[in-house]
Amino acid sequence: MKKYKITVYDEKTGEKHTIEIEMSEEELEELAKKLAEKHNVKVRIEKV
């Protein structure tokens, strides 16, 4: 498992949230996809 920083940005409201999380790359990609689809936000992932 690796550490990642996830930034979620909502273009409508301008809200931006960043968290650090430790998980596998596959789980992370699935999480990012679900966030983007369900909440209509942009998701950026960076390795820490």
Rank of each mutant, 00 (worst) to 15 (best):
I19E: 03
L28S: 05
V8C: 11
V8S: 02
V43W: 00
K16Q: 15
K16N: 09
K12V: 15
V8G: 00
K5N: 05
L28C: 11
T13S: 06
K38E: 09
K2P: 15
V48E: 05
E26Q: 11
H39R: 11
K16M: 14
K2W: 13
S24F: 12
T13C: 04
M1G: 08
K3C: 07
E11V: 07
T7D: 04
K33M: 08
L28R: 02
V41P: 03
H39P: 15
Y9A: 01
E46H: 04
M1C: 10
D10C: 12
I6T: 00
Y4W: 10
E11W: 07
N40A: 07
E30F: 11
E46P: 01
E25F: 08
H17S: 09
M23L: 15
I21N: 01
K34W: 07
E26W: 12
H39S: 12
E11R: 03
I21W: 04
M1E: 06
K42T: 14
Y4M: 04
K42P: 04
M23A: 13
Y4E: 00
V48L: 06
K47V: 15
E37K: 13
M23W: 04
Y4V: 08
N40T: 07
K12R: 10
V8N: 00
K5A: 06
E11S: 05
V43T: 03
T18Y: 09
A36M: 14
V43F: 01
T18K: 03
K16Y: 15
I6G: 00
A32I: 15
V43S: 02
L31I: 05
A32Q: 10
K12C: 14
K5M: 10
I45F: 04
K2E: 11
E46I: 09
K2L: 13
K34M: 11
V8T: 07
E25L: 09
R44W: 07
M1A: 11
H39N: 08
M1W: 03
L28P: 01
R44I: 15
Y4H: 04
N40P: 04
Y4P: 01
I19G: 01
K3I: 06
Y9F: 10
I45L: 04
Y9K: 02
S24W: 13
E26C: 12
K5C: 10
E22C: 14
E27S: 10
K47D: 13
L28A: 11
A36G: 12
K2Y: 13
H17A: 06
K34H: 15
I21S: 03
T13Y: 02
K38T: 09
G14K: 05
T18G: 02
E25A: 06
I19M: 11
V48T: 05
E22W: 12
H17P: 00
H17V: 10
K3Q: 04
H17Q: 07
I21L: 11
K16W: 15
A36T: 12
E15C: 08
E26M: 11
I45E: 01
K42S: 13
E29L: 12
E27F: 07
E11F: 07
V41I: 11
E37L: 06
H17T: 10
E29S: 10
H17L: 09
A36I: 10
E15T: 13
E29M: 13
E22T: 10
E27V: 05
E25D: 12
K47L: 15
K34E: 07
L31N: 01
R44E: 09
K2V: 14
I45Q: 01
V8D: 00
K42D: 06
E25W: 10
K2M: 10
Y9P: 00
I21R: 05
E29Q: 13
R44C: 13
E15Q: 11
E20M: 11
A36Y: 09
N40S: 08
T18A: 04
K3Y: 06
H17W: 14
E37V: 08
K42W: 00
S24G: 11
G14Y: 02
T7W: 05
K5L: 14
V41Q: 06
A32T: 14
E22K: 04
M1K: 15
L31M: 09
L35A: 02
E29C: 14
H39L: 10
E37C: 06
K47I: 15
E20Q: 05
Y4G: 03
E27K: 07
E46D: 08
S24K: 08
E22H: 08
T18S: 06
E27Q: 14
V8L: 10
V48W: 00
T13Q: 01
I45T: 02
K38P: 06
E29K: 13
E20T: 12
K2A: 15
E22Q: 07
K12L: 15
E27L: 09
E25N: 06
I19R: 03
T7C: 07
I6W: 00
L28E: 03
T18I: 13
V41T: 10
E30Q: 13
R44S: 14
A32M: 13
M23P: 00
V48R: 04
E29A: 10
L35Y: 06
K12S: 12
E37G: 12
V43Q: 01
K2Q: 15
E11Y: 09
E46Q: 05
E27P: 02
K33W: 02
Y9I: 12
R44Y: 07
E37I: 05
I21Q: 04
E29D: 11
A36V: 09
K5V: 14
